[in-house]
Design a binder for these strands. Structure first.
Length: 608
RNA sequence: GCCCUGGUAGUGUAGCGGCCUAUCAUGAAGCCCUGUCGAGGCUUCGACUCGGGUUCAAAUCCCGACCAGGGCGCCA
C-alpha cells in the first residue's frame, strides 16, 4: 500500500518511484498545479500534481478531477517519482521539505466530511472546547500535540520498563476483578453472574496482590497497573489511571527510594538525554506543612511560611488577637522585593491594588482576609501597623529578614487553615510572579509521615497513607500515643504534585492486625476482609516494601500539560462520561435479569 | 453536596441595554489563478444554550435550568 512513510523521503530517494499513503492536511490549488500536504504518523510530504508533466491528456484530466475532489483529512494513496522542488521553494521547516512527489497515480482510500474542528496545526488557531475534542477524540489524536504526548508517554514507560527489567524486576499482571476492600476510595463494583447478589470490585491499586507476590517469593515485582477509584475528578484525577507499581522484598525505605531514583534517572537519560540529580532531597511531613503549607511542596521557589504567632501576640491588632485567643496561629510570608520588581521601572509589581486583590483572593480561600506590611527605610508600614508596637514590628523585621521593599503577608486562622491558605498563597504568587519560568523539574521525598490521622467528622482513627504501612520501630507499643507514631512511608513529590507514594509494609501479621484494630475494624471484619492476607503474612512473609508512581501525572508534568487528560488517549470528562462512546449507558433489562439485579434509578436519573 | 468561571455561525472570537438585519478569522460551497506550503483573490452559506422576568427596547441586566471546566468536600 505504501513504499515509504510521509516522513521518510530524503535526497537519496530522488528519482525513485514511490507510493505514499496518508491524510490530506492542506491542499493548495494554483489553477493547474495542485499541492497536497500528505501527512501520516511520521511526517508530512508535499505531493504535487503538475499538468505539464503529464503525457496523456485523458489521464491528466481524470486525475486532476479526482484530486480536486479530495477534501481535508481524506485518506489517499499516491504513486509517483521523488524529485527536487523548484529551487527557492524548499521548506526548511520540514525534514522532507527539499523534495516532493510528482503524482502519477492517485486513489481515494477513504473520504471525510467537513471537520468539526481543525486537525492541522495552524498559527493562531485555538483549540476547540474540550468536550468537542473528547467527542471526536479520534480526530484530536491526529493533532501533532496529542500524538507527541502519547509518544512521549510511551518512551517514558518503555524506559521505566527497561530499567526495571535490567534490575531483575518481573512484570506480573494482577486481577482486575477482586474483592472489595473496606476504607479507601469508593469502589467500582462488578456483579457476579454465577453468584447473584455478590460483587467484584475493580482494584483501587494492586496493593494486596503485590504484597502476596512478595509472600510468594517473587522478590521483585512491577506492573504498569490500571487503578480505579470512584471519587470525584480533578484536573489530575481520572476514575481510571495508571501507576507504575513496584514491590520488592528484603528492603528498607532507602532501598526503595534509591531504586526509584535509578529508574527515574534512567528515564531521564532515555527521554531527555540528561542526567537527573540524585539522590532527591528529603523533607519531613512536619517541615513541609510548616514551611510550605502542603504535604506536596514545590521547593523550586522560596516564599516559606513562618509561624509568627508568638511575635505578634503583643500587638493589639484585633484580628490577630481574636484568632490567637481561639488557639489559632498567624503565618507570615516574606515576598522579597526582587521577586516583585518589574523590568520597566522601580515600582514593585505588587502594589496596593494587587494586595487588595490578594485580600479578596484570601477571602475566597476561606480566610477572613489577609494582612500585609511593606518594609520601608523607616520600618514596616501598612494601614494597620499602628496597632503594632515598635518592638513587635522590629521583631517581625528580624524574624522575617525584611529588607526595604519586601512585602510581608500574614494569614491568621486555625493551624490547618492558616497553613493551607499559606500553601495556596505560595502557589498563587509563584504563578503571578512567574517564579517558575525557566526552572528545572525538582523531585523531593516527603518522609516522616504519621501513621494515623483522625477523621474530621467522626474522630475515628484512619490511616494516613494506607493500612499496610509498617510503623517506625516495627511495632506500636502498648500505651503509645498512636497519633505520634510515624510510618515507614515516603511520598515522591515533583514540582508541587504528589506523583508517588510507597512504604515498607507490615510483614508481621500481628503488627498488621494491631493496625487494623486501631483503624476501628472488628475481629470479625478483619477476618472477613483480610483473613487470607493475614494468613499469608503468617506463612513466612519476607520484609518488603514498594512504591507506586502515577504515570499520568508524571507524564503531564513533564510535558507541561494542564490536565492529565492531555496524556490519556481516551479520558473521561468531569462526570466520568466518555463523550466518544457515550458510556456509562443503560444495559438491557435482560442483562440485569441475568445478574438478578433490579434498577432503582428512574428514567429521569439516567436519560441523556 | 457546595463554591467559582464560561456558554454567540462547523470551529475560535468581537459585541455586554437602542447604533445588531451581530464583528473578524477560519471552515464549507463555487469561481479565478501554473510553484505554493496557514498559498492568494472574488462570491455565497452559516450563530446569540434553554425557560422565565425587568424594560418602550435584551445577545447584552436579573432569576432558574441545562452543558462544560476549575476548585472545596471526597480521593486509605
Amino acid at each position: 500500500m505504501r513504499t515509504h512513510t510521509c516522513g521518510e523521503l530524503r535526497a537519496d530517494h530522488l528519482g525513485k518511484d514511490v507510493q505514499l499513503a496518508g491524510w490530506i492536511r492542506f491542499s493548495r490549488d494554483h489553477g493547474g498545479v495542485l499541492f497536497f500536504d500528505l501527512a501520516d504518523a511520521y511526517g508530512t510530504t508535499q505531493v504535487v500534481f503538475d499538468p505539464e508533466a503529464m503525457s496523456e491528456k485523458d489521464d491528466r484530466e481524470s486525475l486532476e478531477r479526482m484530486l480536486k475532489s479530495f477534501g481535508r483529512e481524506s485518506v489517499i494513496s499516491v504513486a509517483g517519482k521523488v524529485r527536487n522542488r523548484v529551487p527557492g521553494t524548499e521548506d526548511a521547516r520540514n525534514p522532507t521539505g527539499q523534495l516532493e512527489v510528482l503524482i502519477e497515480r492517485a486513489s481515494l482510500l477513504n473520504s471525510s466530511p467537513p471537520l468539526p474542528f481543525e486537525v492541522a496545526d495552524q498559527k493562531g488557531s485555538l483549540l476547540p472546547s474540550e468536550d468537542l475534542r473528547l467527542r471526536y477524540r479520534f480526530l484530536d489524536l491526529r493533532r501533532t500535540q496529542m500524538a507527541n504526548n502519547l509518544r512521549f508517554r510511551h518512551r517514558l514507560v518503555a524506559a521505566a520498563r527497561r530499567a526495571l527489567d535490567a534490575e531483575d524486576f518481573v512484570e506480573v499482571e494482577t486481577p482486575m476483578l477482586c474483592r472489595q476492600t473496606p476504607e479507601g476510595a469508593r469502589d467500582f463494583i462488578v456483579p457476579s453472574r454465577i453468584f447473584p447478589g455478590t460483587f467484584y470490585a475493580l482494584p483501587q491499586s494492586p496493593q494486596l496482590y503485590k504484597q502476596m507476590l512478595m509472600v510468594g517469593g517473587l522478590d521483585k515485582y512491577y506492573q504498569v497497573a490500571r487503578c480505579f477509584r470512584d471519587e470525584d475528578s480533578r484536573s489530575d484525577r481520572q476514575p481510571e489511571f495508571t501507576q507504575l507499581d513496584v514491590e520488592m522484598s528484603f528492603v528498607e525505605e532507602t532501598d526503595v527510594q534509591a531504586l526509584t531514583e535509578r529508574v527515574l534517572a534512567s528515564v531521564w537519560r532515555s527521554v531527555y538525554g540528561k542526567e537527573l540529580v540524585t539522590p532527591f532531597p528529603r523533607i519531613t511531613f512536619y517541615d513541609a506543612m510548616h514551611s510550605y503549607g502542603t504535604d506536596a511542596p514545590d521547593i523550586r521557589y522560596d516564599l516559606r511560611l513562618q509561624d509568627v504567632t508568638d511575635t505578634v501576640k503583643a500587638a493589639s491588632y484585633e484580628i490577630f488577637q481574636r484568632v490567637i485567643s481561639k488557639g489559632g496561629r498567624v503565618e507570615c510570608m516574606n515576598v522579597k522585593a526582587e521577586l516583585m520588581a518589574t523590568t520597566s521601572n522601580d515600582e514593585t509589581a505588587v502594589g496596593r491594588n494587587e494586595v487588595d486583590r490578594l485580600i479578596e483572593w484570601a477571602k475566597g480561600q476561606g480566610m477572613g482576609g489577609l494582612t500585609w506590611m511593606r518594609m520601608t527605610k523607616d520600618g514596616l508600614q501598612s494601614n494597620i501597623v499602628k496597632y503594632f508596637p515598635r518592638e513587635v514590628t522590629q521583631a517581625l523585621e528580624a524574624k522575617m529578614g525584611a529588607e526595604e521593599g519586601d512585602l510581608l503577608l500574614f494569614l491568621a486562622g486555625s493551624e490547618i487553615a492558616a497553613l493551607k491558605a499559606g500553601g495556596e498563597l505560595r502557589r498563587k504568587l509563584a504563578k503571578d510572579l512567574h517564579l517558575l519560568e525557566g526552572k528545572d523539574h525538582q523531585f523531593v521525598w516527603l518522609v516522616g509521615c504519621p501513621m494515623f490521622q483522625k477523621d474530621s467528622v467522626s474522630g475515628q482513627l484512619e490511616a494516613f497513607h494506607h493500612a499496610f504501612v509498617k510503623p517506625v520501630g516495627g511495632d506500636i507499643q502498648e500505651g503509645e500515643d498512636v497519633m505520634c507514631a510515624c510510618g515507614m512511608s515516603y511520598d515522591l513529590v515533583l514540582d508541587g504534585s504528589e506523583i508517588g507514594s510507597g512504604s515498607v509494609r507490615c510483614h508481621d501479621p500481628e503488627v498488621q492486625r494491631k493496625v487494623f484494630k486501631l483503624l476501628g475494624m472488628s475481629d470479625e471484619k478483619i477476618e472477613a476482609d483480610f483473613g487470607y492476607f493475614l494468613e499469608a503474612l503468617g506463612y513466612g512473609a519476607p520484609p518488603h516494601g514498594g512504591i507506586a508512581l502515577g504515570i499520568d501525572r508524571l507524564t503531564a508534568i513533564l510535558l507541561g500539560c494542564e490536565t492529565i487528560r492531555e496524556v490519556i488517549a481516551f479520558p473521561k470528562n468531569k462526570k466520568f462520561q466518555c463523550l466518544m462512546d457515550g458510556s456509562p449507558a443503560k444495559v438491557d433489562e435482560a442483562k440485569l435479569s441475568e445478574l438478578q439485579l433490579l434498577c432503582l434509578a428512574g428514567d429521569e436519573d439516567t436519560e441523556e
